[in-house]
Design a binder for these strands. Structure first.
Lengths: 187, 187, 187, 187
DNA sequence: TGATAAGCGAGACGGTACGTCCGGTCTTGAG
DNA sequence: CTCAAGACCGGACGTACCGTCTCGCTTATCA
């Protein structure tokens, strides 16, 4: 079960990198809605067909540019559950605050209806890194809390504060949110 | 403090209604990204300039169509804080689950960077209905919890479950989430 | 047979002048096709309804601005027929060479199909000044040449040279054309 | 001296024909001023960009539609100079009387100021067919008359009679005009 | 002299058409 | 057999302008 035997002319891998970089740059400059395939192609020094050969739509291209497949965990595990929750919350805040993610994420969400494959791809991208890790962490500590519920609360709060309220997320907010969650988790 | 003295030809109010209705209908049919001003104008039986005279962009039009200024509270208050938290959570789930909101909200979020006025308009739309009510509710009950923190958690969890995870939000999820939050709130 | 008894507020005659002047100025600056009622109104310091109250279309406005009703003959009569023909030819060349006429005349011609009243108005404007004078001149001299034929030749040659060929109309061209015509007229 | 090596997707030649045909049809129906690129595109079953890819303006499109590059002489040569002059005059009358030409020509003239390239294109279109032929005809017969002068008179007279005066051009007018010209040409 | 009625300047409206950008596809020639 | 590149077709954009409508004010005639 290997990939195809590389039939025909091999793809120019330097183009992939140039296109992804151009996408990230332009996302930061003009945002998701104003990002055009034409502009990406021009910035990357190539043409639109080269883009469409690699990704079926702007949404897929942005997805790969902003959430490249797994490098390392988005945030480290903590020594205990309390530390893990805090690290996940601050990690989510940091992630959603990155200019590129801020520009891209709502745009990607809005295209889920049109591109279901994109939806599952994004979920899979974070499955092991977020839900699976949280699930095993809770099991280790013997805490009877549903991982989905906790992840929804942690990630959702970060998303709301950063993206919707656009409030400055300071230590006070983090402390209070973590306190509430930890008290709610306790048996 | 009265409105302007109505200079020039007055606007055809039947057009406003037709345009908003066409916008809602098309949002449900094609989604936010595929929604075009041209199609809205055609469906409403008018033309693009009539749209741009009323709203400066697609985002503003969708905002008013999906979140018309205040009619009645999005969800009722509960008898006590526990009931209120549950009602807010189920209310947020119901709101985010409405096909029109589901189609529109991420699209609107993605345009905040381009249209800051839209950002503040959306926040103001929900300020009194959500944050202010929650703040006074917490004060009444003498609970020392920050309203922002609680609203972020409740609304964020609903948003994550409905929009990102797209999971079927059943009673179990609601019960567990409410339980966690209430335990976290307790003094 | 008098005009109406001037009911209601009388028209502001200073506006007529300002509008006509603005029309002439703009014709010279942007040409007939690019001339807009909006721009004329703005330049004249008034509004479009004031224009449409006075003239039913751009074509009618331009007609009156460029060919105001009779002031004095467009060219003088000559001492004899030879001189008259030469004066008419040079007069026609001068008229068609005026920047405003150059800009307006073909535009007006192109609107004859749409505005028949304009067609007859333009013909009447020149009837007595051109055809009638030429007709009586020929009769005086006892020359058996049809005035229509001669006017078509003289004015047509001037129009062709100035407007279509856009050639520099020098004395040589005038001499040769007049010579040919006079020889052709001789009995 | 060959054309470019046909880079990119070749143009759909059936569109060229459909657009030119739609232009001619609409010219006859609504005239030059009322002719719109939108209507031409719709009638031709295509879109505006397809038009602008081929012609830079309505004027250029109409020019090619009404005066397609050279098919055959607009009128035949006559056996002698007298016949040639008469044939040119009747030919010019017939040309200017064609509904399409009548609708288009003044409109084109009015755009010369804005589109100088159109001016030269129109002159070149008729150079060999009108001026060159007349010049050589006069040389053959040894007649010392300037071709420009004669063409201005013949074509100008036809234009005046048909387009400006809009008179029914009968045999009498033709006979008298030709008589005058031939007498004027004689040595 | 005061009421009536029409024309006025002003400004915004509903809608047509504009000229352009972009999405997505096709064709050619190179590798 | 695939690639890179360039031009194509057509959907949609956001705007300028057209011709009209509504308003409040001004002006002249008539009661």
């Amino acid at each position: 079960m290997s990939t195809a035997p590389a039939l025909g002319r091999p793809r120019d891998t330097s183009l992939d990198a140039a296109i992804l970089r151009a996408t990230v740059d332009l996302l930061g400059e003009v945002g998701y809605a104003e990002l055009t395939m034409t502009a990406v192609a021009a910035r990357a020094g190539t043409t639109k067909p080269a883009l469409y050969r690699r990704w079926p739509s702007k949404a897929h291209l942005v997805h790969e540019a902003v959430f490249p497949p797994q490098e390392q965990p988005l945030w480290p595990d903590g020594a205990d559950l309390a530390a893990s929750v805090r690290l996940m919350l601050t990690g989510a805040v940091a992630l959603f605050s990155e200019p590129t993610v801020r520009a891209a994420l709502p745009g990607l969400l809005s295209e889920f209806a049109t591109h279901p494959s994109l939806h599952s791809a994004l979920l899979e991208r974070f499955q092991s890194d977020v839900w699976d890790r949280m699930r095993s962490r809770l099991a280790e500590e013997g805490v009877g809390v549903d991982a989905d519920v906790l992840v929804d609360l942690v990630a959702g709060a970060a998303f709301m504060a950063v993206t919707l309220r656009s409030a400055p997320v300071d230590d006070t907010w983090v402390d209070r949110t973590v306190d509430l969650l930890l008290k709610g988790i306790q048996p």
